[in-house]
């Protein structure tokens, strides 16, 4: 049975990188006695894949990984058992059965994510809230993407689905996943450039709010949370 786990990661644990955080959850599965499945061979490993890896320093209220379990365990019991073995800052929100198909794996279907960016160092101009919509209304937002070999100009505007000013920062909904992926840091960089704010004078904290799959047909986007594709397990 395939299962999707939704979790929060906040506070000091944000400094744990993706691979180490995966190891953390693998050990947690054992401590919580979740009947998880393993691959075969001399060094069997847990079947576990994260939908959208988090960078070091990024916090989340809605991230996901998929696992496979050997026999059913109720969603309620699993969430409670897992939360009993979590460290401060990590919380499991749901444990739901998902479709068997590989095409429905979190990693394969993630298409968008919500973020809240807040200023942790420096200042934006007083009127930044009024500048956000004109910034977003541009037909193109070009930034220079640097790779090891080359620099190329990319238009990030199509990957910004939504953006708005909030009391505590800037909310944005961005493309995520293998087809198109945009990091909120790049949006903030472009916005700072638009405002004429020197890049090195300001730093933002990124907080992910939710991850989505695109269930739209033809060319219409219809984002639904990864959680909504799962169903509660009762035993």
């Amino acid at each position: 049975m395939k299962v999707r786990v939704k979790f929060k990661k906040n506070g000091a644990v944000r400094y744990i990188g993706h691979l180490d955080f995966m190891r953390y959850f693998q050990k947690a599965m054992r401590r919580a006695q979740i009947p998880i499945s393993f691959s075969g061979g001399y060094s069997p490993h847990m079947i576990m894949s994260f939908a959208n890896p988090l960078g070091v320093g990024v916090t989340t209220d809605g991230d996901y990984f998929d696992i496979e379990i050997k026999h059913p365990i109720s969603s309620e019991a699993a969430v409670s058992q897992l939360n009993q073995v979590m460290v401060e800052g990590v919380e499991v929100l749901s444990f739901l059965e998902i479709a068997e198909s590989k095409k429905m794996a979190g990693m394969a279907i993630v298409a968008g994510a919500d973020y809240l960016c807040t200023i942790k160092k420096g200042k934006l101009p007083e009127d930044w809230k009024y500048q956000l919509m004109p910034f977003f209304s541009q037909k193109e937002i070009c930034i220079v993407k640097k790779t090891k070999r080359s620099e190329k100009e990319v238009d990030i505007r199509p990957m910004i689905y939504n953006i708005s000013a909030e009391d505590d920062g800037i909310f944005m909904q961005l493309a995520a996943g293998s087809a198109a992926n945009l990091k909120p840091g790049l949006v903030m960089e472009a916005f700072c450039e638009y405002l004429g704010v020197e890049k090195d004078t300001i730093a933002f904290h990124t907080h992910r709010l939710e991850n989505y799959a695109d269930m739209g047909e033809n060319d219409t986007r219809n984002l639904v949370t990864l959680e909504s594709l799962g169903t509660v397990i009762t035993v």
Binding site: Y15, V87, E88, G89
Partner: peptide, 10 residues
């Protein structure tokens, strides 16, 4: 490896 310095381990 900032996780060397944050404590909070299981």
């Amino acid at each position: 490896k900032p996780a060397r310095y944050i404590g909070n381990e299981v």
